[in-house]
């Protein structure tokens, strides 16, 4: 890659972030000035939140289980079996729960949002909305944004809870670690600050998923080909953003919520 194309890529990325922030500010304006469509909001909560539960629970549960097993294999060598629960719980809350939920929701919900809005765009349904005096941001973006902001922290919580329950099961029933020790160290080392971090990350990842997906949908062009591309790009972009932003977010949040407090 030469300097010129590197520069173009960087400019393109900055422009993309600019477009996302325009969408974000238009959404804020809409929430502040236009009546919120609660019916659509409820439908979206069912669509994006309620129906995502199975995926998120399975992901969280099996991650917690296998993570407990691998941690045990290492910790057992140095006789720290009882610390397994604490490691799993802290990691689930701080990193694995939010990130895995974010990625699963990006794949399931982000893709669906981009495809749906993209189809509406290329079949002139968005123009039809506008011609009937309905702002597409009010009608399409705001209900989805609010639904995801509500659902995501709850999904993260479910994912973490299942991961921890699975680790308790594997640790105490399969690996025969003392139940009392396992749980007491877990409770001692994992607490409110870890849960706060999970919730904050859930909010941030919800914003990433919903704005990237809505942006892709609203900017869909070129008919069926474009509609095919919109969800793929939405998933790729939002997944990468989640992973990168998560890294910096962990550093920033660790200042506010230091580990083990």
């Amino acid at each position: 890659m030469n300097v010129q194309s590197l520069g173009r890529t960087a400019l393109g990325f900055i422009q993309y972030l600019g477009e996302l922030s325009v969408l974000f500010s238009e959404t804020c304006v809409s929430v502040a000035s236009a009546p919120i469509r609660w019916k659509l909001f409820v439908r979206q909560v069912l669509e994006v939140g309620f129906r995502s539960q199975l995926v998120v629970i399975v992901t969280g549960g099996f991650t917690g289980a296998v993570f407990a097993y691998q941690t045990y294999l290492q910790f057992h060598k140095v006789g720290m079996d009882s610390a397994v629960g604490a490691v799993v719980a802290v990691s689930m809350f701080r990193e694995l729960g939010p990130v895995l939920t974010g990625l699963m929701v990006a794949g399931r919900v982000g893709a669906a949002i981009a495809a749906e809005i993209g189809t509406m765009k290329v079949t002139e349904q968005i123009d039809a909305l506008r011609s009937l005096g309905v702002h597409p941001i009010d009608y399409l973006v705001v209900p989805r944004t609010l639904a995801l902001l509500l659902s995501m922290p709850l999904l993260v919580a479910e994912s973490c809870a299942l991961g921890i329950l699975a680790s308790i099961f594997v640790g105490t029933k399969v690996l025969d670690i003392s139940e009392a020790y396992f749980i007491s160290t877990m409770v001692k080392f994992a607490g409110g600050s870890d849960i706060s971090m999970a919730m904050i990350k859930g909010f941030v990842f919800a914003m990433i998923v919903v704005f990237v997906a809505c942006h892709q949908g609203l900017n869909t062009k070129n008919g069926a080909v474009g509609v095919g591309r919109a969800p793929t790009e939405a998933v790729v972009i939002s997944s990468l953003l989640i992973l990168v932003i998560n890294f910096f977010l962990s550093f920033a949040l660790n200042i506010i919520y230091p580990v083990g407090r």
Binding site: M120, T123, E124, D127, A128, S131, G133
Partner: peptide, 18 residues
Amino acid sequence: GAIRKKVGILFQSGALFD
């Protein structure tokens, strides 16, 4: 909004909400 109450449009494709 006010203009669009006065002027309605029929799209080439119909543009029904599917």
